[in-house]
Every structure is written in C-alpha cells, then in structure tokens.
C-alpha cells in the first residue's frame, strides 16, 4: 500500500459515509437519489482500490447508470408535492434499534480483527515459503543425483519416484513467493479441475470437455487460458478470470439470474400496468 492508495482510501471512505448520510437526511427524494449516485461513485473507487476492476466498472454502469435512472424516472413520474413527501420521523426507539444493530456490526467487525492477525498470517506465509524452497532444493539435489545415474532402467524408476515427491506450493507459500495480489485461481480449484480434465483427456479416458456442467462445442477442445496458467498477477479482478469463472463454475447461477431478471421484468410490467 503506497501513500496514494491510502490517501484515496480515506477520501473515498469519508465521501461514502458523508453521501450515505445525505441519502438518509435529505427530505426530497430527488436529492437523496443524487447523493446515492455520488455514493455509488465512491464505492466504485473503493472497489478499484481493492483491485476489483470489473466490479468498479459494473458499479458505475449498472448501479449509478441503470438503477439510479430508474429511481430518478419514478421520482419524476410521481412528481410528489411537498406534503406527500412523508415526514422525517425521529422516534427514540428507532435510534435505539439502529444503534443496537450498528453496535453489533461494529462488534463483529472489530472482534474478528485479532482472528485475522496480519502479522501472524504473513509469518505463516514466510514460513511456508521457506519450507517450500527448502523442499524444492532437496528435490533438485535428488534430481541431480538421479541424472548422474548410468543405468537407464534404474534412472527411469528413480525419476518416477522423485516425480511423485515433487513439492507443491500451497496458497500461503505461493502468496509469499509471488506476491499477494494476483489471480491465484489454482487454489480456488478452477485450474486444478482443468488439469485433471486435461490429464484424463491425454490418457484417453474422456473427451476434454466432458464434465458435469460443461456444454461446450465438442469439436474444439478447450485449452487452459494463458492468463490462468501461472503468475499473472495483473489479471486479478479483471474481466477475463471473472468471465471464465462465470461460464464454468457459476454457469447455473448465472443462467438463473437471467431467469430472475426476466421474471422481474414481467412482474414489474404486470404490477405497474393499469389494465392488462
């Protein structure tokens, strides 16, 4: 985290809180809506700081663009007079219940802080990285020894044995060695699934795109996307890994979302129409 990132975090954080207060405090819903648009922009900035690039863009396009236009359209359509705006009702039990919920959330947010002690986490990462490097060194030494073997048959056997004991990176050691910010989709299972599929395909067991949820063109085998195959840290949060996740692991929820939107459109038309 550099200076500018910290500075922008505080700007966006204060902006988000102030504009949220404005959303609640404004009497006219038109001003509330405009404050909410501002709020969404601040949130998009925060998403950008968290390297969720696609989410930041979607926030601006979908929330600040589409949804808020719908709100503004309804506000203009209703064209509320001053006495129809509704009162700002300030009762003590509202304050108490909001305070109770807020206090609970604050408690949760601060109570988990010791549970995610960053020093401990990074120490663990360093430790695992050292262990990985040590075991890699042993592996390489053994490999050099085996390479020196003269008997071909014994050499092949030993190589096979050695291959099985090749050290694998864990999430912690990988983070420590390659840096904290990159798409480590290996550990979230996507690449492993593809590797398994590739292995099964290469051993002639199944077609490569045969899986529970895959409905790809059977004639062209899917290959592993370049950006997922290694330490491409720049791809975290961008559209490519996101789209790969959506059309692979989350394809059913994605289709269900499409169905939900269709149902919402039909429902909105039926509710809002005067006479069908």
């Amino acid at each position: 985290m550099g200076f500018w990132e910290s500075l922008f975090f505080w700007i966006f954080a204060f902006g988000a809180v102030l504009s949220s207060v404005a959303v609640v405090a404004m009497r006219n819903p038109l001003y509330s809506a405009l404050a909410l648009v501002l709020d969404f922009f601040f949130f998009a900035g925060l998403y950008g700081l968290l390297s969720a690039h696609l989410m930041a863009i979607t926030q601006v396009l979908v929330y600040a663009g589409a949804i808020m236009v719908l709100f503004l359209f309804i506000i203009m359509l209703l064209n509320l007079r001053d006495d129809e705006l509704g009162q700002f009702e300030f009762r003590i039990h509202h304050l108490i219940s909001a305070g109770a919920i807020g206090g609970l959330l604050f408690f949760v947010a601060t109570a988990i802080t010791p549970l995610v002690d960053m020093d401990k986490v990074s120490a663990d990462r360093e430790e695992q990285a050292k262990a990985y490097e040590a075991s890699l060194k042993t592996y390489e030494n053994n490999l050099a020894q085996v390479e020196g073997e003269t008997d071909e048959k014994v050499k092949a056997e030993k190589l096979k044995k050695l291959e099985a004991s090749k050290p694998a990176m864990t999430l912690q050691s990988r983070t420590a060695i390659k840096g904290p910010l990159y798409a480590d989709l290996n550990e979230s299972g996507l690449e492993r699934v593809w590797q398994e599929r590739l292995a099964r395909h290469e051993s002639g067991q199944t077609a490569i795109n045969q899986g529970k949820w895959s409905r790809f063109d059977k004639s062209t085998p899917m290959v592993l996307p370049e950006s997922l195959s290694g330490d491409d840290r720049a791809s975290f949060g961008t559209i490519e890994p996101m789209s790969i996740l959506i059309v692979n692991r989350f394809v059913v929820p994605f289709e269900l979302t499409a169905l939900l939107l269709l149902a919402a459109i039909v429902g909105a038309v039926i509710i809002a129409k005067r006479r069908l």
Binding site: A33, L85, G86, E89, G102
Partner: peptide, 12 residues
C-alpha cells in the same frame, strides 16, 4: 438500516 427505520418515504 437507520434510514429504513426512520424514513417513511417509500422511495428513500
């Protein structure tokens, strides 16, 4: 949450 509890205007 506070806004949902305090405000009475449905749009807000």
């Amino acid at each position: 949450v506070f806004g949902v509890m305090v405000r009475r205007n449905a749009i807000t």
